[in-house]
Design a protein around this nucleic acid. Structure first.
Lengths: 189, 189
DNA sequence: CTACAACCGGACACAGATGTCCGGTCGGTC
DNA sequence: GACCGACCGGACATCTGTGTCCGGTTGTAG
């Protein structure tokens, strides 16, 4: 009868809400990383050791959860974009790193045409960040002159997707080689 | 009461079996092309105008259907590979063409590590075909010297996947540009 | 100590897909 | 022309995932 396990919170009143929320986010981050953003939400609540009810109370739908999980990553990309000391290679590097770490991030990068506006926003923000340093890279001769913003997005999408289709321990190697084949310099963080 | 439509065959005896089979294959080709090899099979039987029972009688499981649908495409690739007059660019061209025409073909190309042996066989066959003309292309200086068989597969996988994630009417343009970025010549059939 | 209100967990109703099973129907055969 | 057996279609049982709802628990206030 006494399930006094170390679960996030078998009801500790209002105070537990935050703990449950954090547990759900952590669980979702892991599950989405492995299976992409379409993974079953029931798996998330199970992994978090929390009831379905709590999941849906904190995050009414799947997108709410995705947004909460990846806001941080997208901001990290934007931070590099805003850094005047950074170069295009750094920007591509952090995006590639995110793709290596999480299958779901790839879904996000590709979602500039997604049906849901909140998801599209992520895709757009990453695209905008990537565009930031392209002119400077072109001016400095760091990349081929013919490279357009669109090309950059295509390249990122190709590399990111390739990475998600190989075993985890090969991802860094595959990503590096892919960028080499494309003739674009990248600096992985 | 009289459903005397032009359906493949509301039971014409043994003779209808072949007709139903053909209708199922055609339906599956369309549905797989659009939604990939994981599309619901119920959609296939519905589109074919045939009962679920008939579908499963002809093709006991999903893979049987996939194999039947794409055997032809894979053979076409192998035919080009066997043609001593063809060049690597032709080989990459036909594979790219198949990817443009069918999302499901991309699933196949990537399935050299799939759980099912029949699916793996497809991936392996395409990989083997691609490898056929690489030595000649290297000798003739048609591609960069550093290009390995593995690189070729990576490149194909990247381009093919990129293509499936854009609207149909952009696919040819995206595929062409992707190969350009990779610095590899392709001749689309 | 008791009553309250907020929050929790999981049962549940629902939806979509899979694969099976069986009554009905039609060509073939004698 | 009547029977037979093969084949057809779709209803159905099952499974997996989604989102809702409610009885139960627990911290807090009086």
């Amino acid at each position: 009868m006494g399930p006094t396990t170390t679960r996030p919170g078998r009801n500790l009143g209002p105070r537990a809400a935050a703990g449950n929320r954090a547990a759900l986010l952590a669980a979702a981050r892991e599950i989405f990383a492995q299976d992409g953003i379409r993974a079953p939400l029931s798996a998330v609540s199970r992994r978090a050791g929390v009831g379905q009810g709590s999941l849906y109370r904190h995050f009414p739908d799947r997108i709410d959860l995705v947004v909460a999980v990846f806001e941080e990553q997208v901001e990290a990309v934007e931070a590099v974009a805003a850094d005047r000391g950074a170069r295009l290679a750094d920007l591509l590097g952090i995006v590639t790193r995110n793709a290596i770490d999480s299958t779901a991030f790839v879904d996000l990068v590709r979602s500039s045409t997604a049906p849901d506006a909140r998801l599209r926003a992520f895709g757009t923000r990453v695209a905008a960040a990537l565009a930031t340093h392209l002119p400077a890279a072109l001016a400095a001769g760091e990349v081929r002159q013919e490279l357009s913003e669109r090309d950059l997005l295509l390249a990122v999408s190709m590399v990111a997707t390739a990475v998600t289709h190989v075993a985890e321990d090969e991802r860094v190697a595959v990503a590096s080689r892919a960028w080499e084949l494309l003739g674009i310099e990248v600096r992985l963080p």
